[in-house]
């Protein structure tokens, strides 16, 4: 009797095991076929062509070679001076680019801060403001910055303002989502206490939620500043001014050494900002937020 029951159990297990294996094999097969199809389609549509790449590699090397500055061992400083012959203009343009990133970051962070409480499911004062804030952030985040720049350059004319607005919008969307997620993890007990004390919605956000989330907000905000400066450096290509515009200009005029000079300038600037932000974040985290909120 027991043996028969045991056999049945084994049979059932075998049956289940086989079904599971079949399903897994099927999933793998479908996945492989889908991947192969996507690969083929992408290769055809993307005009993937090893021959062209092979033919292009010397071109690329030649291009890079041409951009390298001629720095001799005999008078290296003079040569570097020669390479960076327009350093004063470039530094000013780089400053514009950094400011574009900075103002865009601050404006975007401000908008994100203003509406992130509406976009948090546990805090939104009502359903429709939650929906509007969520969809608004999603829209702002999804449209690529460059699309916004193209539109704003058309409206406001070429210049850094178009870049600032584009960065601010995109950043507000990206940061707003992160902020809302932080808000959703906030401790509900102080919120309940303030509601019970008769505080209004905005006061509850200010005193029960903000002190909890502010350190995270600052950390996220600084994390993205470097990325925004990097983005600002290329927005000039489509007319947002700054160093990117100059870079595109020298590329199209084939002034090769200037290309490497400007690219290196961007790289160094972004790296410096990255390091500065990292230090600031650490000091903020160590100092604790008590000071920041009082």
């Amino acid at each position: 009797m027991a043996a028969i029951a045991g056999d049945a159990a084994v049979a059932r297990f075998e049956e289940r095991h086989r079904a599971l294996r079949r399903r897994k094999a099927l999933t793998t097969a479908i996945g492989t076929v889908l991947f192969a199809a996507a690969f083929l389609a992408s290769a055809i549509v993307g005009e993937l062509d090893p021959a062209r790449l092979a033919a292009g590699v010397p071109n690329i090397l030649d291009y890079v070679h041409r951009t390298l500055p001629a720095i001799s061992a005999r008078q290296p400083l003079t040569d570097i001076g020669e390479w960076y012959w327009a350093i004063d203009v470039w530094l000013l343009l780089m400053l514009d680019t950094v400011l574009m990133g900075l103002v865009g970051t601050l404006a975007g962070a401000g908008v994100a801060l203003l509406f992130c409480f509406h976009a948090a499911a546990n805090l939104a004062p009502n359903r429709w403001s939650f929906w509007v804030a969520r969809r608004g952030f999603e829209f702002a985040r999804t449209v690529p910055e460059l699309v916004f720049v193209l539109i704003f350059v058309f409206a406001f004319g070429p210049g850094p303002f178009a870049g600032v607005v584009a960065i601010a919008i995109h950043y507000a969307g990206a940061l707003g989502k992160l902020f809302a997620e932080v808000n959703e993890n906030a401790d509900p007990r102080p919120i309940e206490a303030l509601a019970a004390a008769g505080a209004g919605w905005s006061e509850t956000m200010r005193f029960a939620v903000l002190p909890q989330v502010l350190p995270n907000f600052l950390s996220y905000g600084l994390l993205r500043f470097e990325i925004n400066v990097r983005a600002a450096s290329v927005l000039g290509i489509v007319g947002a001014g700054g160093i990117g515009e100059e870079l595109y200009l020298v590329v199209r005029r084939f002034i090769y050494p200037d290309i490497s000079a400007i690219v290196l300038l961007i790289l160094v600037t972004v790296a410096l900002i990255d390091m500065g932000c990292e230090r600031l974040r650490h000091s903020l985290i160590e100092a604790g937020p008590a000071r920041a909120t009082r």
Binding site: R189, P190, A208, A290
Partner: peptide, 24 residues
């Protein structure tokens, strides 16, 4: 109301936590 878990805002100082009672 007084709560089992006190429900203070942990990151604020005691003074502000008490002043929160004045918000309305």
């Amino acid at each position: 109301m007084i709560f089992q878990q006190f429900n203070l805002v942990q990151r604020l100082d005691v003074l502000t936590n008490v002043l929160v009672g004045r918000l309305n």
